[in-house]
Design a protein around this nucleic acid. Structure first.
Length: 488
DNA sequence: TGTTTGATTGTTGTT
DNA sequence: AACAACAATCAAACA
């Protein structure tokens, strides 16, 4: 009885911690421990206090005991200890974080040995954490920079003790790219492309659009400046005289030179990168874009600029929308971002607009969305593990055929990169319910909702396949993140 | 050498 | 002097 009471107190405390910001701090600390391989058993022990269930029946029993105790309190809602500043959805996302903790510890492996991929995983916690924070930016937007710095310094301190230098290594860059949710970035690129495609004035034509007559307007502007005496002509007569260069002027009326494929790629990608990681510097973004560019493949490199430029010349964007998107799907990462339902909807002839809408609902500005955060957009792991297991080009070869080339239905066993990552994570044993025993602990999850995103048959519609109900939050949204973090 | 973006800095003009 | 507006520069990587 007393023990049960103590457990209840511990559980309440854990939930209180979970609801408070300390949840994050503990998570970071736990992650650090897991990463560093320090005190794994301590972490397991703490897991009970942090309210996470790592599959250990005893720990589960602890939390269950708490739940049982809290049954008196409407057993699931726990409103009294919910801070007023936290919205209700965040409360429901507690399961995600708990699962994250759990997955972290499992990522370390029960025997204390680091999995084969843990080396890479150790190299990218900063951005990954920032990504995870970005996913919860609606909660932590104010703390994000500080936390990023904290984690980064922490990681730097840890890395400094290891022989391998983190920076300056292409592999590390690649892993960084993966950690930075490459697929999300590429997906956002795709979305942007999709939006651009449908937009009447594609970026390629933006320069030509405002300037029907460039030369005359230029002269007019010159005259205008001469007449009005504005300061533009006075551009640095005595200014520094440093690099006369070419004044650059950047006349908007001047027809832009055809920008390189890489420039276009950079322009599209950097926005997504910045969106994901606002604190990323230009150098970081440039490196990431470069690594992504390297992983693109020749045809994709050429298709990338061709898309935007052909868009400008294509008279019928809607009709041309579908084919140009396919290379994007072949890109490594985007396919991993798409859920099976998305892919199937795409293959089954769903309207590109709906697909773009679906994508947009998932990846665009996740933190700003008031709707439930996009659970399936957990692209952290898929590219990572694909990169771990395969060279980037091989990944593209692996991912692209089912989507962009072969119309034949995919084998149900390995329909998506999500399944791939699950298999990679669960290496020896096939993925099954027994691998996620804690899922069975969720009362409303078992029957009504298919666990995980790998249910192409459910529906292609995002609204129906995701979270309308409680199960979508407690399990469907939990499982993907759990899996992805499981792999990190 | 030019291109990408965004922040910063420097210069000039106005109040 | 203070402020506003604009231009130039810088970062990394690629064509």
């Amino acid at each position: 009885m007393q023990q049960t009471r103590a457990e209840a107190v511990a559980g309440a405390f854990s939930h209180c911690l979970g609801f408070c910001g300390m949840r994050l701090g503990l998570f970071l600390l736990a992650r650090h421990w897991c990463i560093a391989g320090v005190f794994p058993q301590k972490l397991d022990g703490d897991s009970a206090y942090v309210g996470m269930s790592d599959g250990n029946p005893e720990l589960l029993s602890t939390s269950q005991t708490y739940n049982g105790q809290s049954e008196n309190n409407e057993d699931y809602e726990i409103p009294p200890i919910t801070p007023p500043n936290l919205p209700e959805p965040s409360l429901l996302h507690l399961g995600d974080h708990e699962a994250s903790y759990h997955s972290l510890c499992h990522g370390l492996a029960p025997n204390g040995l680091l999995p084969a991929y843990s080396y890479q995983a150790m190299d990218l916690p900063a951005i990954m954490v920032s990504n995870m924070l970005a996913q919860d930016s609606h909660l932590l937007s104010g703390q994000l920079p500080t936390i990023q710095e904290m984690v980064h310094s922490e990681v730097a301190a840890y890395d400094s003790g290891r022989p391998g230098a983190l920076l300056g290594r292409p592999a590390m860059l690649a892993s960084h790219m993966s950690a930075l949710s490459q697929s999300q970035l590429i997906s956002q690129m795709g979305i942007r492309s999709g939006i651009t495609h449908s937009s009447p004035s594609p970026p390629g034509s933006k320069s030509a659009t405002p300037s029907p007559s460039s030369s005359t307007q230029e002269e007019e502007s010159e005259v205008h400046f001469k007449i009005s005496g504005e300061k533009r002509p006075s551009a640095d007569p005595g200014k520094k005289a440093k690099n006369p260069k070419k004044k650059k002027k950047k006349d908007p009326n001047e027809p832009q030179k055809p920008v390189s494929a890489y420039a276009l790629f950079f322009r599209d990608t950097q926005a997504a990168i910045k969106g994901q990681n606002p604190s990323a510097t230009f150098g970081d973004v440039s490196k990431i874009v470069a690594s992504m560019w390297d992983s693109l493949g020749e045809e994709q490199k050429q298709s990338s600029p061709d898309q935007s430029e052909t868009k400008s010349s294509q008279p019928n964007p809607p009709a041309k929308m579908l084919p140009p998107k396919q290379p994007m799907y072949a890109m490594p990462g985007l396919a991993s971002f798409l859920t099976p339902s998305d892919l199937q909807a795409f293959r089954s002839g769903a309207s590109p607009a709906s697909l773009a809408r679906t994508l947009g609902s998932k990846s665009l500005l996740p933190g700003l969305s008031a709707s439930p955060p996009p659970p399936p957009s957990f692209p952290l792991s898929p590219p990572l593990h694909q990169q771990l297991s395969l060279p980037p080009h091989a990944q593209g070869a692996l991912l692209s055929p089912p989507v962009s080339m072969s119309p034949a239905p995919q084998p149900p066993v390995l329909p998506t990169p999500m399944a791939l990552q699950v298999q990679l994570a669960m290496s020896p044993s096939p993925p099954g319910p027994q691998d996620f025993p804690h899922l069975s602990e969720f009362p409303s999850s078992s029957g009504s909702c298919s666990p995980g995103p790998s249910n192409p048959t459910s529906s292609g519609d995002w609204d129906s396949s995701y979270p309308s109900g409680e199960c979508g939050i407690s399990t469907c949204s939990l499982l993907p993140r759990d899996k992805s973090l499981y792999l990190t």
